[in-house]
């Protein structure tokens, strides 16, 4: 029995604004992305937090209507555009307002065209990295410590199977099994919360 298949994806679940569980995950995965993006672009902490919340609000509002065509782009691409445009808006707003001490200094904002593309690439890279790390955290608890260690040594630190087996104290066959099980579970988890449709 494989209930994994019946599991709705995260992006689907957050359409329900009352799904606290799904939203919790979503926030954990995506808000650091937005936050870091804002900081890198020169925003102060407070502004970044505001931006992140604003983006989340937009997601909550739009996700139900979001009929985006996966062929055109993935969720992360859409999210980037939202974050980026909100950043621009914020910058423009600041230009018109008197600058306070804690506010973002205009001069620090980089908003050239060229850097936007780099930004998106960086965004995607960060997203993937963060996604994997988050998924690993989730999945880790489902395995015995020895299993996890075997996986980590062999798949992440690229130690040889022999070395891994010795370190962990299990057979080499067991290393293969452990590694494969964890990878399979990791793959499923990422499919569930990621935006590849």
């Amino acid at each position: 029995m494989d209930p994994d298949i019946t599991r709705p994806s995260l992006l689907l679940r957050i359409r329900d604004s009352h799904d606290a569980d799904a939203w919790g995950q979503f926030i954990e995965i995506y808000s650091p992305l937005v936050h870091r993006f804002a900081i890198k672009r020169g925003l102060q902490e407070a502004d970044s937090a505001d931006l992140t919340q604003d983006v989340m609000r937009t997601v909550a509002r739009s996700i139900g209507k979001l009929d985006y065509d996966p062929k055109i782009g993935r969720f992360r691409g859409w999210l980037f555009k939202v974050a980026h445009s909100k950043l621009i808006n914020l910058v423009n707003r600041r230009k018109r307002e008197p600058v306070g001490s804690g506010d973002t200094q205009i001069g620090e904002i980089i908003s050239s065209q060229a850097s936007t593309q780099n930004d998106e690439e960086l965004w995607n890279r960060e997203y993937e990295q963060h996604l994997f790390q988050w998924a690993a955290e989730q999945v880790k608890g489902q395995f015995k410590a020895s299993t996890w260690e075997a996986f980590w040594l062999s798949a992440v630190e690229n130690k040889s199977v022999k070395e891994t087996a010795e370190k962990v104290g299990i057979s080499e066959g067991a290393v293969y099994i452990a590694k494969s099980r964890v990878l399979a579970r990791l793959k499923e988890k990422i499919q569930e919360v990621g935006d590849d449709e």
Binding site: H18, W23, F26, A46, A49, A60
Partner: peptide, 14 residues
């Protein structure tokens, strides 16, 4: 700031 922001977001959404 981020962790705090995350916690706060969680209480607001869902």
């Amino acid at each position: 700031g981020l962790q705090a922001a995350i916690n706060q977001l969680k209480t607001r959404f869902g």
